[in-house]
């Protein structure tokens, strides 16, 4: 956030990732541009299958077959385009420069080894010269997150609660001093109090260590608590992106509007909330041309069936929608008339 931050910037450019299916290669992420401003937390929200995890994996050039990064670039300051890295360079980047907490970190730990053993394995695979210093750093991080480091390192995964495992995941992502951190669904399946604790820890550690952070979730509330910027993903496209408070207060894309209206709320008139009609697309049902959201859209125009809306950015807010663009054009003509 400060101009003196040491955090690196990340620029995702025109990224397309496809999965091989019986119906041919289909895009899970298509033509995505996204900039992670140094020192900020960017949240990506979207329904299941919208391509969030695939996007996150691309930051580490870690998409696995039958998936393939078909086009684009992921530039990280000081590293260059990670999509051109291979072999040793790539292996070193993961963990050292880019830390990753996988979806359901709760299950991604090895059940047969203590956390401490897994930490030492991680150190060995990155040629850490001083394992003692690594353990010390891990304990400091765990203590920072309110855990007894010694006890946690001696534990097996099944001896830890969901919230503790999530913190272990964050520790493993940060312990090699990565400056770019990707968290995929960090609070899903946690209860509210544990979730609030984890979100607070993410925010604090992010600031103390001067990180650039990407948080992926289907939960708009979690993003609202933790992120600076909000990117909304649908059918492999980023349909809206902007400062989180502004997007929540005045959502512009019809999907963002529908999503926010569908959130169960603690206060206010419950009859104002409404489920979004229709169902989320899957790879097989995504239209080959035109707007990905049109089947569920109330503002659909004829052009939406044929032309993909392009992303238009104004005053730090980006939207990809024909109807929004038309309304803006009309408003502008009025202003100049």
């Amino acid at each position: 956030m400060t101009s003196t931050t040491h955090a690196p910037g990340v620029r995702i450019r025109d990224l397309t990732v496809v999965y091989r299916t019986p119906a041919g290669e289909l895009p899970a992420v298509r033509g995505v541009d996204l900039e992670l401003v140094p020192g900020t937390i960017t949240g990506v929200v979207g329904e299941s299958g919208s391509g969030k995890s695939t996007l996150a994996l691309s930051l580490l050039n870690a998409v696995q077959p039958p998936g393939r990064i078909a086009a684009g670039a992921v530039e990280i300051d000081g590293l260059g385009d990670v999509l051109t890295l291979g072999g040793e360079d790539l292996r070193r980047t993961r963990g050292r420069q880019v830390g990753y907490v996988f979806q359901a970190a709760q299950n991604s730990l090895n059940p047969l080894k203590t956390i401490g053993k897994q930490l030492l394995d991680l150190g060995r695979s990155h040629d850490v010269a001083d394992p003692r210093a690594l353990v010390r750093d891990a304990k400091v991080l765990l203590a920072r997150m309110g855990l007894d480091g010694g006890r946690v390192l001696d534990s097996y995964q099944h001896e830890l609660s969901g919230g503790m495992r999530q913190r272990v995941g964050i520790m493993l992502a940060l312990v090699l001093n990565a400056k770019v951190v990707v968290l995929d669904e960090p609070t899903t399946a946690l209860d509210m109090i544990t979730q609030a604790t984890i979100l607070r820890i993410i925010r604090e550690v992010h600031e103390e260590r001067e990180l650039t952070t990407l948080v992926i979730t289907h939960d708009v509330g979690a993003i609202a608590e933790v992120a600076d910027g909000l990117a909304v993903m649908y059918g492999g496209r980023i349909v809206e992106h902007g400062p989180v408070r502004k997007v929540l207060a005045t959502p512009r894309h019809p999907y963002t509007q529908g999503l926010i209206r569908a959130i169960p709320r603690l206060s206010g008139d419950i009859s104002l909330a409404r489920a979004l009609p229709g169902r989320p697309p899957t790879l097989g049902t995504l239209p080959a041309q035109g707007c990905v959201f049109r089947e569920r859209c109330e503002r659909r125009l004829a052009v939406c069936d044929t032309d993909d809306p392009v992303v238009i950015t104004r005053n730090g807010r980006s939207v990809a929608c024909h109807a929004v663009e038309r309304a803006a054009a009309v408003a502008m003509r009025k202003e100049y008339a």
Binding site: G146, G163, M192, I193, T194, Q195, A196, T197, L199, D219, V220, G221, A222, A224, E225, V244, R245, K246, V247, L248, A249, I260, I263, R265, L266, S267
Partner: peptide, 24 residues
């Protein structure tokens, strides 16, 4: 429990007397 629920900043503001448990 109610204090822990995420606030949709921009749309909502937090309650004024939020309660946070002192321990896990």
């Amino acid at each position: 429990l109610l204090s822990a629920i995420p606030v949709l900043h921009g749309l909502e503001r937090p309650g004024e007397e939020q309660v946070v448990p002192t321990e896990a």
